[in-house]
């Protein structure tokens, strides 16, 4: 596999000359899969929404601007909640926390998982055994209860939520990266680096990391989806930052204030849809990246289509 360097967190972007290569491949990957383009578009739209939230949101999110549980109308497109606060504004402002926590936690998970995977796969032996048994341990931990416990002990804050989610989601990334590192380790140019007298750390950063970076990126994007999911879950359970507005707290609030028995579907459904949309988009992009970068997943050459016979032309025809 010909790898490409990416701007994933720990890459010390080593090769300027390959940049067009990575760009063109990414563009190609998106063009070949319209689903990835859709995912990318949705994510981009939500990012724009989150960045410009204070300017876009039509009403304040801290004070009531209408009646309690008002149904969607021209003035309140998505109605209002139990306090009379505009739901659309909450949804727009809430996207900030959800996306921020989701991406930061995924980066934390990617950093830990990437490092563990690279070190474990590169050095092998006892290092590998110790790190991988630790990884196994993290894989089997049921995340939600542990997150509840840790978040409760550390106290609710944005930073803690990011750390807790990051610390519990790195294990699968570590496994995937380790496997890829092990195979890159066998390549001639990595062995050659060793004979050149290169230090292991340099070999990893210069030769191995760029080869596994695309896979790491794909994994980080997939982890973003999971992190958003867990962030919402924690908020819903009331363990998140109580002062911040997020999609999770919107749903929690609606649940606590008996929105369902009031028939106020607009208090729950839009936030739920937003979460689902972002998660699906992350998966679409992550999958597309993985497929584009893993040649074994592209099935084109498996086509059972016979070769073609061409009519005789030119020289052959006149000879016969």
């Amino acid at each position: 596999m010909i790898g490409l360097p990416t701007s994933s967190p720990e890459v010390v972007s080593p090769a300027r000359e390959t940049r067009p290569n990575w760009l063109s491949r990414a563009v190609n990957a998106v063009r070949k899969r319209p689903s990835a383009a859709v995912g990318l578009f949705v994510i981009a739209a939500f990012v724009v929404l989150a960045v410009f939230a204070p300017w876009i949101s039509p009403y304040s999110t801290s004070s009531p601007t209408g009646p309690i549980y008002a149904a969607p109308s021209a003035s309140h497109w998505l109605g209002t909640n139990s306090l009379g606060i505009d739901e659309l504004s909450l949804l727009i402002v809430g996207s900030r926390i959800s996306l921020l926590v989701g991406s930061c936690a995924a980066v934390v998970a990617g950093l830990i998982g990437g490092t563990v995977g690279l070190v474990s796969g590169y050095f092998g032996g006892a290092v590998d055994v110790v790190l991988m048994r630790t990884t196994d341990f993290f894989i089997v931990i049921p995340p939600i209860p542990l997150m509840i416990v840790i978040a409760a002990v550390w106290g609710p804050s944005l930073g803690h939520i990011i750390l807790v989610i990051g610390l519990l989601l790195w294990a699968t990334t570590a496994r995937v990266i380790r496997a890829q590192t092990k195979s890159v380790r066998q390549r001639g140019f990595v062995k050659r680096a060793e004979t050149l007298g290169e230090r292991s750390a340099r070999t990893i950063v210069r030769h191995v990391l760029p080869q596994v970076a695309p896979l790491l990126l794909a994994n980080v994007i997939l982890t973003v989806a999971l992190s958003i999911f867990y962030e919402t879950a924690l908020d819903f359970l009331g363990i998140g930052d109580p002062t911040a507005v997020s999609w999770g707290t919107i749903i929690q609030n609606a649940f606590l204030e008996t929105a369902t028995s009031n028939g106020a579907w607009w208090a729950i459904v839009p936030a739920g849809l937003a979460i689902a949309l972002v998660i699906i988009s992350c998966y679409l992009v992550g999958q597309a990246l993985e497929d584009a970068l893993n040649p074994r997943l592209s099935g084109g050459y498996l086509l059972v289509r016979p070769w073609k016979l061409r009519p005789l032309t030119g020289r052959e025809a006149e000879d016969l």
Partner: peptide
């Protein structure tokens, strides 16, 4: 297999000196 596919010839040959 023995040449890093991402590096250009300069980078490959220079590698040992830098290391």
């Amino acid at each position: 297999d023995s040449l890093d596919p991402r590096l250009n010839v300069r980078g490959i040959v220079e590698d040992g000196l830098v290391a």
